[in-house]
Design a protein around this nucleic acid. Structure first.
Length: 530
DNA sequence: CGGCGGTACTG
DNA sequence: CAGTAC
DNA sequence: GCCG
């Protein structure tokens, strides 16, 4: 039943997406400073004023929150993903509006528009209605130089959506009738790293948790393959197919644990969760939908409805849409909640909570979980796992609700409550916090855990979701059940995985013990992510 | 082909 | 209950 | 997308 509904939604969504796209093609002019010779030709007149456009703050253009005149998407140099590339379009004129839009955009993003085909062309972008044979005939040549990149126009729009040069040799960018590049699967995909922009000021994006100390081989032999898989996962995330995202992430997880390079298709197929690595194609998910769904308290259903009602910016939602209190907060602090924060700041938030709690009772223990505990350099939110070695959940939660939260709210540290513990047996509190002197709100969560459940809670609130799912699934397949309270055995399940009986508690207190009972070799928190 | 973690809070 | 978050 |  869920599937049926989903299909329905998907179709619905596509329709809206399409109409939105059309709208965009007409309206979405992007003046910018990236002046290229060809632009003058393209736009004819207005040149002078374009020359001197200063780069402005480059917040998130999609939100349209700060600026009313959504027009001015100034593209700083580092956003010009096509810089240095020479595009030849087929058809190569700007007669029809859509095509003109494409060309304009390409230029806005740094490409040079080559009007007469020559050997400086690096990319040929073919209209959806054209095919390889027509192109060859038009250019009056036998074959194209292999160094040339031949892609459909979709490549361009996807690159823009992604803010990156995407691998052109993917099935969904293939021009109809074009000679196929023989390789497939792992091989084909492996050499396919997106070319990096040769920028002058190349600030290195440090992504590594930098945890490696000992003799561990720091870079995995399958790094490039994983990068591709990650790209595929991201793509499907964009496209809205969460199941495929999960599948790809599972494949990455498998590769992560290998210490030799997988280089043949056979080898890949033999691995669990890793398959042919074929790529399929779907329409990218509506950017507006995507933006709306990043609002706290807004999911697919609400976002779709707003899109259907014609909303296109968060600003409009803020002014006109009917919002729940949480969504209001989500919108007011849209940027705040999306920004990842460095470990040092996460630690400061945790320290405040810990200190306050311990001033009530010095034995309280506050552990920061989530990606922080996994060693990540930055975190999206702050997960505080709150426990007490010899008091029960009731004491813990009442202390939180009656003392800590009011106190920290009064002090100005806690700035919003988004989901609070309901009864006395409540176990979680979600809200926002703000360091003294700062104006940026952070998402902070408290997980209230009695000592006998600490191990299970640590697993649940530290490991990333894929790792969690696999552990729970593993438990399920062994006739057990894993949740944030413990590991249970003798669980009866009906059709599907429907739980018929709760089973009996095996272990909850000790993290390692849970791993052991499940037959999973222990790994420290840093190694429980995908 | 159908299934894809398991739970707690909001409205 | 559906929707959302973790 | 992979698994049973």
């Amino acid at each position: 039943m869920a599937t049926l509904k989903d299909d329905e939604r998907l179709r619905e969504k596509r329709a809206f997406y399409d109409s939105f796209r059309l709208l965009q093609d007409e309206n979405d002019e992007v003046p910018d400073r990236g002046l290229q010779a060809s632009r003058t030709a393209l736009r004819g007149k207005k040149t002078a004023e374009q020359v001197s456009v200063a780069p402005t703050a480059s917040a998130t253009p999609t939100t349209g929150k700060r600026k009313r005149d959504g027009r001015s998407a100034v593209l700083p140099l580092d956003q010009q993903i096509f810089r240095g590339l020479h595009f030849y379009f087929f058809p190569n004129n700007d007669k029809n509006p859509a095509q003109r839009m494409r060309i304009t955009k390409a230029i806005d993003y740094g490409a040079l528009w080559v009007k007469d085909f020559d050997n400086t062309v690096t990319h040929i972008l073919v209209d959806r209605l054209m095919d390889y044979a027509m192109l060859i005939k038009f250019l009056n040549i036998k074959t194209l130089p292999s160094s040339l990149v031949l892609v459909t126009e979709k490549w361009q729009s996807d690159c823009i959506a992604w803010k990156a040069l995407l691998e052109p040799a993917q099935e969904h960018f293939k021009v109809s009738g074009a000679p196929t590049t023989s390789e497939k699967a792992v091989e084909a995909i492996v050499h396919a790293q997106a070319p990096t922009l040769a920028t002058e000021s190349d600030k290195s994006l440090e992504l590594k948790p930098a945890a490696h100390k000992g003799g561990e081989k720091s870079d995995s032999p399958n790094a490039s393959t994983k990068a591709i898989l990650q790209q595929m996962a991201d793509y499907y995330g964009q496209v809205g197919d969460e199941w495929r995202v999960r599948a790809y992430r599972k494949a990455i997880a498998t590769l992560r644990n290998l210490n030799h390079k997988v280089s043949t298709k056979e080898e890949a197929l033999a691995l669990p969760n890793v398959g042919d690595l074929d790529s399929a194609c779907a329409e990218p998910r509506d950017q507006v939908l995507q933006t709306f769904m990043q609002i706290y308290g807004v999911g697919f259903v609400q976002a779709s409805q707003w899109v259907r009602e014609g909303y296109t910016t968060i600003d409009e939602l803020d002014k006109k849409a009917k919002l729940t209190p949480n969504q209001g907060i989500g919108i007011d602090h849209y940027e705040d909640f999306l920004i990842r924060k460095p470990r040092t700041e996460v630690e400061q938030h945790g320290a405040i909570v810990r200190k306050t709690l311990q001033s009530v009772n010095k034995d309280f223990v506050v552990t920061i979980g989530g990606s922080f505990r996994r060693g990540a350099a930055t975190s999206g939110d702050i997960d505080c796992i709150v426990t007490h070695p010899h008091r029960d959940i009731k004491y813990i939660s009442s202390t939180m609700v009656d003392k800590l939260v009011p106190h920290l709210t009064k002090s100005g540290f806690l700035t919003a409550a988004l989901a609070v513990t309901s009864k006395d047996d409540g176990t979680k509190w979600h809200g926002a916090s703000c360091l003294p002197g700062s104006k940026i709100w952070r998402r902070i969560d408290f997980m209230l855990v009695p000592p006998e459940q600490l191990g299970a809670a640590m697993i649940a609130f530290t490991d990333n979701d894929i790792f969690n799912r696999s552990l729970r699934l593993l438990a399920s397949n062994k006739g057990m059940r894993l949740n944030q309270r413990g590991l249970y055995k003798g669980v009866m399940r009906g059709k599907g995985r429907e739980k018929l009986s709760d089973g009996e508690l095996v272990e909850g207190r000790d993290e390692k013990e849970i791993f052991e009972v499940l037959g999973v070799t222990w790994r420290p928190p840093e190694h429980r992510a995908v």
